[in-house]
Nucleic acid binder design. Structure first.
Length: 213
DNA sequence: TGTTCGATGTTCT
DNA sequence: GAACATCGAACAA
């Protein structure tokens, strides 16, 4: 089991972005704002593999002001806007290696009322997509370039649930990118209804081993 | 249950 | 001017 917080502190361990993407499933993301605290369990992620990945913003070493954060150290937040929506990534590789993991969906845990107010939706519509979870948690472009260990957005050190089964699939919305369109770089918790475009049977435990938090 | 289309900011052609 | 790591409303059947 990868200890993410140690990794983000700079433990010197070496993990691939795919490994980090899977280790994030079951971790608890917390955001503190003046309006209140919201948190949720990560249920879906996607890995973006920097230089060679044609689907990544940092493909081929492209480095513009917008994607500066991708070149930061592990745990740096890369927050960008897609149409009207905010998307959150966490950098996975040492400084200068532009790889990251996109957080795509959360199972809400705390601050449900605040999330409902922000989203004007309920149930799985609160956070079953990358733009939706940012709105539910109140994450804005201000978070770009901050570090997960030194930000209003953090990972709970003492809470963690374990997925029964991690599924992988091609990433969502990647078209005309050769082999990268089909690469299985999306990871999600099987049977959890907060996964975007969820289909199939809802697991009794929402896909988590044994107890909930 | 499915497809289409508009909003909107940054980047590249 | 077009493309895009999205979302939700509007529409068709």
């Amino acid at each position: 089991m990868i200890n993410l917080l140690e990794y983000y502190q700079g433990s010197g361990e070496n993990y691939t972005s795919e490994e980090i993407a899977q280790a994030l499933l079951g971790s608890v993301l917390v955001n503190e704002t003046p309006e209140g605290l919201t948190s949720g369990i990560i249920v879906e992620t996607e890995a973006y593999l920097g230089l060679e990945d044609e689907a990544a913003h940092s493909y081929n070493g492209r480095n513009t002001p917008r994607i500066q954060a991708m070149f930061g150290k592990p745990g740096t937040l890369y927050v960008h806007q897609m149409h009207r929506h905010i998307l959150v990534n966490i950098v996975t590789q040492p400084k200068g290696v532009p790889q990251g993991v996109l957080i795509r969906a959360l199972e809400p845990l705390e601050g449900l009322e605040l999330m409902t107010e922000r989203r004007k939706k309920t149930g799985h519509e609160l956070s079953n997509g990358p733009g939706k979870l940012s709105q539910a948690m109140g994450i804005s472009m201000d978070y770009n370039l901050e570090h997960i260990l030194d930000s209003r957005l953090s990972i709970e050190p003492n809470k963690r649930v374990i997925p029964i089964k991690i599924q992988s699939s091609p990433r969502i919305g990647i078209k005309n990118k050769g082999k990268w369109t089909d690469a299985a770089l999306r990871f999600y918790v099987k049977g959890n209804p907060f996964v975007s475009r969820f289909k199939g049977e809802i697991s009794e435990t929402f896909g988590w081993k044994s107890c909930r938090l």
